[in-house]
């Protein structure tokens, strides 16, 4: 008892106290950026999960119908009238049968559905599986679609923004092989999984399902697509869930609304509208045809200058180039 109250007992000196405070401050300053990184890591996980769900939905569709859905079901090819895209086809496989029935994907074209205000409202709501949580874009995209028979700009309809685009090939975007041939192109065009009225199945993916990209990311806008140099001010504008307009007047015939190609580097500035990009630092997520979700670095080997399929990224996008990729 007496020992405990000994006069030898003393508190902290000022120096000791300051050192302790300084150490605590340093530790907290280390922790704070880590918390921000943890948030981005969580968003990345969510995005990966979204792509996994989309991959599973496409697999289920393929089990039911023997092939992947068409990139776009081309009913109208003029006047920006809406056609259903691949993601609308897999709504029942994504646990969205009610929405599928409500907007009547089975019965009509998207242009028909856009004549009905309640269907438009449902499609403007969208659902979160098709949105990357890291994307800061608006909920409603600025890419317009027109209802059936209405082709003036005043009748444009704007639906929800999505962030996932199907793989349409390794170099340039065309509706079909025939369209590419008409433009004098063949190699590197329409060699992905999705194109207009496509019925691509697992057997068509001769490079192997783990070597071919199925769906990738497209963000809405990103500072890096700003005017860092003259003329590169286009933005990616995200993607559409329900479809687009394959009219000739539309950029890339509207296929860019639902699919992407390797015309620009991952997260690259030139032609981001028809390519794959994300707001994740250092690359973008892709789901391969076998259902594996991969984060592909934007440093990946990619020669976009020529038609030839001669780089790793082009080989991943091409389904039948005969050049499987090992590690990437």
């Amino acid at each position: 008892m007496r020992n405990r109250l000994s006069p030898r007992q003393r508190g902290f000196t000022l120096i000791e106290l300051l050192v302790v405070i300084a150490i605590i401050a340093v530790l907290i300053s280390l922790l704070l950026p880590a918390v921000q990184q943890a948030r981005e890591a969580a968003r990345r996980s969510q995005c990966k999960n979204n792509l996994k769900q989309i991959g599973l939905g496409l697999h289920n569709y393929s089990e039911s119908f023997g092939s992947f859905p068409p990139g776009m079901v081309e009913v109208f090819s003029s006047g920006d009238q809406g056609n259903w895209g691949w993601a609308a086809m897999i709504l029942p496989q994504m646990d969205q049968s009610a929405l599928y029935n409500q907007i009547n994907v089975a019965g009509y074209s998207l242009g028909d559905a856009l004549l009905d205000a309640t269907k438009i409202a449902a499609m403007r709501n969208g659902f979160p599986v098709f949105k990357c949580p890291s994307d800061t874009g608006p909920d409603i995209t600025d890419r317009d679609i027109n209802p059936k028979g209405m082709t003036s700009a005043a009748q444009n309809v704007y639906l929800c923004r999505a962030n996932y685009a199907g793989n349409a090939g390794s170099w340039r975007m065309y509706k079909t092989k025939a369209d590419a041939a008409a433009a004098g192109r063949d190699i590197g065009c329409v060699n992905g999984i999705f194109w207009a009225n496509s019925k691509c199945s697992f057997k068509d993916v001769t490079d192997g399902s783990s070597n071919t990209i199925l769906v990738g990311e497209r963000c809405y806008s990103q500072a890096q697509f700003g005017p860092d140099s003259v003329g590169t001010s286009t933005q990616p504008h995200g993607a559409h869930i329900f479809g687009g307009a394959t009219s000739v007047s539309n950029t890339y015939y509207g296929m860019a609304d639902v699919t992407g190609v390797g015309e620009s580097f991952i997260n690259g500035a030139a032609y981001p509208r028809n390519s794959f990009n994300s707001l994740h630092v250092g690359g973008a997520h892709f789901v391969m045809v076998d259902g594996a979700v991969r984060f592909i670095s934007d440093n990946i080997d990619h020669n976009k200058s020529t038609a030839a399929i001669d780089s790793a990224y082009e080989r991943l996008l091409g389904r039948d180039d005969g050049q499987p990729v090992g590690e990437f």
């Binding site: 140099s229 003259v230 003329g231 580097f265 990946i300 080997d301 990619h302 020669n303």
Partner: peptide, 13 residues
């Protein structure tokens, strides 16, 4: 476009 593979670089005039 690097000959040994990798990401290229772009500029506008």
């Amino acid at each position: 476009q690097p000959r040994d593979g990798g990401r290229g670089s772009v500029g506008m005039t």
